[in-house]
Simulated scan of single mutants.
Amino acid sequence: MREDAIPRLGYSRRRFTAMIVGGFATGVVTRAIRPAEAAPEDVRIADLDWVDARRDRRVPARLYWPSPGVPAGPVSLIVFSHGLGQSRTGYSYLGRHWAASGYASLHVQHVGSDGSVWAGNPFEVLDRVNVAADEREAMARAADMSFALDRLLDKDSAFAAFIDRARIVAAGHSYGANTTLIVGGARVVREGRTIDRRDMRFKAGIVISAPPFYGERDLHAVLAAITIPTFHVTATADVIALPGRRSPVQDRLEVYEAVGTTRKALVVFQGGSHSIFTDRLLTGGVTLNPQVKQATAEGALAFLDLAFRGDPSPLSSWSEAWSPLLAVAPTAYLVPESSRHPSRRYRPRS
């Protein structure tokens, strides 16, 4: 991709432990983590197997949670939506990093567009992709996000009392980025009726490699109603190539431009790929791959310092630390001085 094609845009430990144990006893299913998947010492992982009875749909999830004593107060929550053909176990580098930094990260699995897309007769994969990318599944994914949040915030949940409800974030990669935009306020019109799955509980969005809204001619009309702060991440080689669907990196930039809020920031890594943001270890190269992963995980939290605390300095420090990797560095939007609150300062990577 030519450089000129990219725009230059400007608690108590005892009480917590008791509640966790109680939560596991009332329906949370935990699974052993293999040594290669072992979480950092200050991260706890639990698999939750929920069913939305109203829709007769399973909603599995994996929760990454800081160990007791890591957060200095209520825990901010990120609800993450995976890309097409992925699952709750994917994007573990994000869950681990965010939980180790004091955020909870709930990774929702969408059973209509998860790994089952790649299973079965290989000659029918195009049909399965088309079904998974159908508008009904897109809306079902948004409903999965809201349902999972309902369950985690339920009065009987072991985690509800520890979550800061003013700092709940929607996040996702690829198809999950579209899901993030939908719960953040994206709208489509069908037969004169507006379809809106916005969930007002989500106060910010992390949008990684967002595809276009296929079939929509007016992207601005779809995304103009989004008012929450959004952090957009892509790469110069971020090309989507799926059976029957191809999307160049320019689509990611157009999604960013079309989002209605001015409280947004864009990161474009130099090189990379669409799948570099998944748990794949080699895509993009053995050196660049882990760097982009770490930079993405850190950059999201630096942006949330801007969104929730009005402090642009962590994002500025992040941009400086990772400048060798950036084709486009994020520009912090203006925040009134009266809205700023003290925040943690960005700590450069080791």
Score class of each variant (00 low, 15 high):
R34W: 11
F24P: 12
R58D: 14
W65P: 00
G120K: 03
E37T: 09
R58P: 13
D52F: 05
D127S: 13
H82D: 09
L84D: 01
H82S: 07
H110P: 06
G95A: 00
S12Y: 08
G27W: 09
L84W: 00
A142K: 04
F80P: 07
S116Y: 09
I45K: 02
A53G: 10
E37L: 11
E137A: 12
V70I: 02
R128Y: 03
F123Q: 12
P40L: 02
M19W: 13
H110G: 06
P74Y: 07
G115T: 14
V129F: 13
V75F: 00
A104P: 03
P71L: 01
L94T: 05
F80S: 07
A39F: 06
G23T: 02
A138H: 13
P68L: 02
R58V: 14
S146H: 08
R62M: 04
S92F: 08
D49Q: 15
V29G: 13
V21R: 10
R54T: 14
T30N: 14
E37P: 10
G90F: 09
A100K: 09
P74Q: 05
V129D: 10
A143G: 10
R15E: 09
F16K: 00
G10M: 11
G120F: 09
A140S: 05
D56W: 02
R8Y: 13
P60E: 10
H107V: 15
A25N: 14
N130K: 11
V75T: 05
A25P: 10
S105Y: 03
F24C: 15
Q109P: 05
G27S: 09
V75P: 01
P66D: 01
I45M: 08
I20C: 15
M139R: 15
Q109K: 11
G69E: 03
A99K: 00
R128Q: 02
A46Q: 11
H110W: 07
V51G: 07
S113R: 09
L63V: 06
I33S: 15
S81W: 03
A133W: 15
A133Y: 14
I33G: 15
P74K: 08
R8W: 14
V21P: 08
R14M: 15
R44H: 04
V129G: 10
M145L: 09
